[in-house]
């Protein structure tokens, strides 16, 4: 494990831990569920307040590359019997997310928490629950790792 990679992730973990212990600082609606190692973390995300996703809870899986933070982590919604991905124009039914911050616009100065908050706000600002165009085609051929997909980003409008 590269030194930068593991040390930085440990720092982020520590920070998340401190934030979650303090209700005043905690990012509302985002919670760390599992972090057994420095490879895969799980978060739960819900949009608090008025939104199309009221009372829905989603699980986010974040996988890290040893080249993190120079390479973005692979982030997707968990699809299982218990949790489903949100119906959202940028989220495919296999859990893959089309967001520029996870690809071209990733910067090593960002963090896992920044990603969670971005995705949360992406859900919060959604105006219409619909599947992305070409969802079925994509899901049928999508690679396991969303980072292997070349997404084309279409601006912020949802």
């Amino acid at each position: 494990m590269s030194v930068v990679y593991s040390r930085r992730l440990k720092k982020e973990l520590q920070e998340i831990q401190i934030e979650q212990a303090d209700p005043a600082k905690r990012a509302a609606g985002i919670q760390l569920l599992q972090a057994e190692d420095l490879k895969t973390w799980y978060f739960s995300i819900e949009v608090l307040g008025e939104s199309l996703y009221k009372n829905e809870v989603f699980h986010l899986m974040v996988r890290f590359d040893p080249e993190y933070p120079f390479k973005s982590p692979a982030v997707q919604f968990v699809v299982s019997d218990k949790v489903k991905p949100p119906v959202h124009p940028h989220v495919y039914t296999n859990g893959h997310i089309c967001a520029s911050i996870l690809g071209d616009d990733w910067s090593p100065t960002l963090s896992v928490m920044a990603i969670c908050i971005t995705i949360q706000s992406m859900l919060a600002s959604c105006k219409k629950k619909e599947l992305p165009e070409g969802n079925d085609d994509y899901v049928r051929t999508a690679p396991d790792n969303p980072k292997k997909t070349r997404f084309v980003y279409h601006g912020d409008s949802v």
């Binding site: 973990l13 599992q34 972090a35 057994e36």
Partner: peptide, 10 residues
């Protein structure tokens, strides 16, 4: 099985 294993990691 969700669990947070922060202590051990840190």
């Amino acid at each position: 099985m969700w669990k947070v294993n922060l202590k051990e990691l840190l």
